[in-house]
Design a protein around this nucleic acid. Structure first.
Lengths: 163, 163
DNA sequence: TAGGTTGACTTGAAGGTTCAAGTGATGAGC
DNA sequence: GCTCATCACTTGAACCTTCAAGTCAACCTA
């Protein structure tokens, strides 16, 4: 892929320090929440969020393919994950009655109970580490910043013509 | 772990929206950079950063245990990683001459060349997705926000007495 | 209604990460 | 100087994720 300029615009000291802090916090925060969930709910982050998204659906039910989309994972990964959650009794799967190609993932009562039991601790952690560290205005700014980055990621996906 | 209050302080709509955006961008940004590196350098993020940290040392050399610390990975993980990088010719290991217990990880010339060749594209990506999206002042704020979160993570590590 | 295509998963193998146990070099105590 | 503890890794097994290939239902088309 040819570039317009030959010389790279390296990061200056300010920019580099900012980037290191951002990259580092992403890593550590992800890890901290992962640990908290593992400890308090015996669930990984992806497991927790898969169950959470299910719990937000009417009847605690969603098609595998849609669940994969809303939880940002490949269908294959979800399929393996569902199998494990199924053996743990937190989720079950049923072929859709009206169309045999679809599979519905359904949160079991036990899965829901697990979620109800562990949600407070998770919310507390999110509060303690992030939310409570900022004012309403600051949170708003962080959200804006996040969305600005997201727009850039989405904007450049695969298309080098973007700019 | 008993809590002071029985009722959970759930997130309000603003807080929830902010948190979802932050959590989502962490996930997507990590993934976007991972893809960029895989594509342009045939290296995973952890591989790239392991080599980068080595390249910043005098003689491109660092003890395995110290390299593990600065790259935020377990010694075990680094050991496996080093073995793979070694077979790819990007890194080599030598027992320390003065103390046989230490192992030095050394960036090979080929490894350094790979880094030199791929750094521009990576910096460009970081610029395009993050740095260039913000003013100097905004970057400063983002850095502050990151460090505030980091302080909270470090503060509560394991010690429930913290507050 | 047989044959091919598409969509929606599922499966198996390969590779990476983690955890616990193993190895080998030093240094301390007797 | 022999034994034991410690340090700094390394290794193996179990588990998770990814990728490519496989299965199976429904639809389409002649």
């Amino acid at each position: 892929m040819p570039r317009r300029t030959k010389t790279t615009r390296w990061l200056n000291a300010e920019e580099e320090a900012a980037w290191r802090a951002i990259a580092f916090v992403m890593h550590r925060l992800t890890w901290a929440l992962e640990c908290q969930l593992e400890r308090d709910a015996d669930l990984s982050y992806i497991e927790y969020h898969t169950l959470v998204r299910l719990s937000e659906e009417p009847n605690h039910t969603l098609r595998m393919s849609e669940l994969a989309i809303v939880t940002n994972q490949s269908l294959s990964r979800l399929s393996h994950l569902a199998k494990r959650l199924e053996t743990r009794g937190l989720l079950r799967r049923e072929t859709d009655a009206s169309d045999g190609r679809f599979t519905n993932a359904i949160l079991t009562d036990e899965g829901y109970a697990r979620l109800v039991a562990s949600a407070p601790a998770h919310v507390e952690a999110v509060r303690a580490l992030v939310i409570d560290a900022f004012s309403t205005a600051e949170l708003r700014q962080l959200r804006d910043a996040s969305e600005r980055i997201l727009a850039r990621i989405d904007g450049q996906t695969g298309t080098p013509a973007a700019t």
